[in-house]
Nucleic acid binder design. Sequence first.
DNA 1: GAGATAATTGCAAGTGACTTGCAATTACTT
DNA 2: AAGTAATTGCAAGTCACTTGCAATTATCTC
Lengths: 148, 148
Amino acid sequence: MGKEHHHHKPRTAEEYKQFIKNAGLSFTKPRLAILEILVRDHGPFSADEIFKKLPEKMCDLATVFRTLKQFKEKNLINPVKFDEDFTRYEFNDPHHHHHHIICTQCQKMQTIEDCFLEQFEKKLQKMGFREISHSLEFQGVCPRCANA
Amino acid sequence: MGKEHHHHKPRTAEEYKQFIKNAGLSFTKPRLAILEILVRDHGPFSADEIFKKLPEKMCDLATVFRTLKQFKEKNLINPVKFDEDFTRYEFNDPHHHHHHIICTQCQKMQTIEDCFLEQFEKKLQKMGFREISHSLEFQGVCPRCANA
DNA sequence: GAGATAATTGCAAGTGACTTGCAATTACTT
DNA sequence: AAGTAATTGCAAGTCACTTGCAATTATCTC
């Protein structure tokens, strides 16, 4: 996605902690819990979905929004926007760049592994653009819905 | 964008009228005025931007939202989502398919004419997906901002 | 490690984009 | 031209997301 990624996906408890601190954020329980969900369950999730996955009393929904905002600013996660009235976020794994297709009927989402857009970003870079990233999302009726 | 387009861009007053009626919508002054803005000024515009471009007292902002919703349902316009908290819409011109790059500093937008994604949609079609469309948007710092 | 300082959090209230109920107006049908 | 159906204006409502502030928790400094 164009931007620099000096991190790899955290695995151990200690790595999660360092991951958050390396990003320049202080380490708190809510941030750990939210990051774990994004890393382990990797679908693009809305703030609300993440909130519901958190253990009871972990934190307020406002904290989820604040945390997502900071994670995004630190480039740990990417916003994914479908034709919905909320924003989804996904862990920014440089080793697993991909896109999505969402079914306009059943809303089920699948990932598309192919990405042929890096070359295109290089073109833009030659044109003088910097810190380029892109988002590419497909919509359509999935095979199962099409046959029903 | 994958979906069927049986229309071409309207030019004359009569064509605008027929264009709206062909879509199965009744012809009203607000709808004409909104469509004209989308066709003639072609940038992706928010409801608010369109509202401000309308002549005084043309209609309520609520009507702009309602109209955009219907235009979208009739596939006359496409939503374009950047990392903003509102939705932009753009006239769906089958003869001028393109994408955008928006500068994360000055917000200026440029169009990208290239589109190599039709082949990709064909792949998805072979997989059984129907009525496929896509959205591809780039973000980055534009040359002018990069040098400042 | 204790205390000072700075950042984060919970809660409740606030925004802002977008929607909706309803009565009045306008478009379409015949 | 009258009757029916769709659209509109207005105001109130919804929903995702934000924010002010006081209390808590993390980090820094000694």
